[in-house]
């Protein structure tokens, strides 16, 4: 099944519909090791659905998805996932550190409480997203940007080979958004990253390739993105705005 050792995720003629409403039609896309792929497109264009198909949370109506040459459900332990909306209540009685440790499930022992090793790895993941000092806090005490970092740490703590992020910066300010993408750029050195966004202008400075989804894969830009290409896509030169980098 695995034609190319470098193809980590192979999406072949996949269609998906919620009841009668088709959201994805005949999507074919290969994701290579080491990529930083931006999945862009309008709202309801099927971006989040595609991520959920890759994770095996949804089953395609037609077509096949292979992840590391295997079915999504059996390969998803090697994927890290940062959902768009926190699926949990912010008032849930859980600390930042415990939240991140839940990313160790399936890797640490099956029974009992979390091990010392889980605690250490959670702290290390929090350190890489630069919020180690918040580890004892409850979730409702965090700002939007801090919560986003917690979700990224939770995805990183399982040491994924591919990191899938769904609008990781949708609810946070511009400065925090730049910080998070700078962070992702660093991880890209040893990790394949797929990020969903509706904001091509912003992500194009970070990603190595974009795929535009609007029910179908309308554009699939394999070439390296540079200023000229963005001009082509947008019809106007891009303004690169430099903000000071502060952490919230």
């Amino acid at each position: 099944m695995q034609s190319d050792a470098q193809t980590l995720i192979n999406i072949d003629n996949v269609s998906y519909a919620y009841d009668d409403r088709p959201v994805l039609e005949d999507i074919t896309l290969d994701i290579q090791r080491g990529e930083f792929l931006g999945l862009i497109g309008p709202n309801a264009g099927g971006k989040s659905t595609l991520l959920k198909l890759i994770l095996g949370l949804l089953q395609p109506d037609r077509g096949t998805i292979r992840v590391f040459g295997d079915s999504p459900a059996s390969a998803r332990g090697r994927l890290g996932y940062v959902p768009q909306h926190a699926a949990f209540g912010r008032d849930f009685p859980i600390s930042v550190e415990e939240t991140v440790m839940l990313g160790r499930l399936g890797l640490s022992g099956s029974y009992g409480r979390f091990s010392r090793d889980d605690h250490e790895r959670a702290r290390a993941a929090l350190a890489t997203v630069e919020i180690e000092d918040l580890r004892r806090r409850g979730l409702q005490e965090l700002s939007g940007g801090q919560l986003q970092r917690v979700l990224i740490a939770r995805a990183l703590v399982c040491e994924p080979e591919v990191l899938l992020l769904d609008e990781p910066t949708a609810n946070i300010d511009m400065r925090a958004e730049e910080d998070i993408f700078a962070l992702l750029k660093e991880y890209n050195a040893h990790m394949t990253i797929v990020v969903v966004s509706h904001d091509i202008a912003f992500i194009s400075t970070y990603v190595s390739r974009v795929a535009c989804l609007n029910r179908q894969l309308v554009c699939h830009q394999t070439a390296q993105l540079d200023g000229k290409l963005i001009e082509q896509l947008y019809g106007a030169p891009m303004h690169l705005i430099n903000h000071n980098h502060h952490h919230d």
């Binding site: 996932y81 959902p83 415990e98 499930l105 640490s108 409480r113």
Partner: peptide, 23 residues
Amino acid sequence: TALYYKQLLAICFDEEFARVRGV
């Protein structure tokens, strides 16, 4: 509860993520 505390915590807190982690 002692045996499956982590998993029970995971499904109470965030069911979708628990599923992604193979719970």
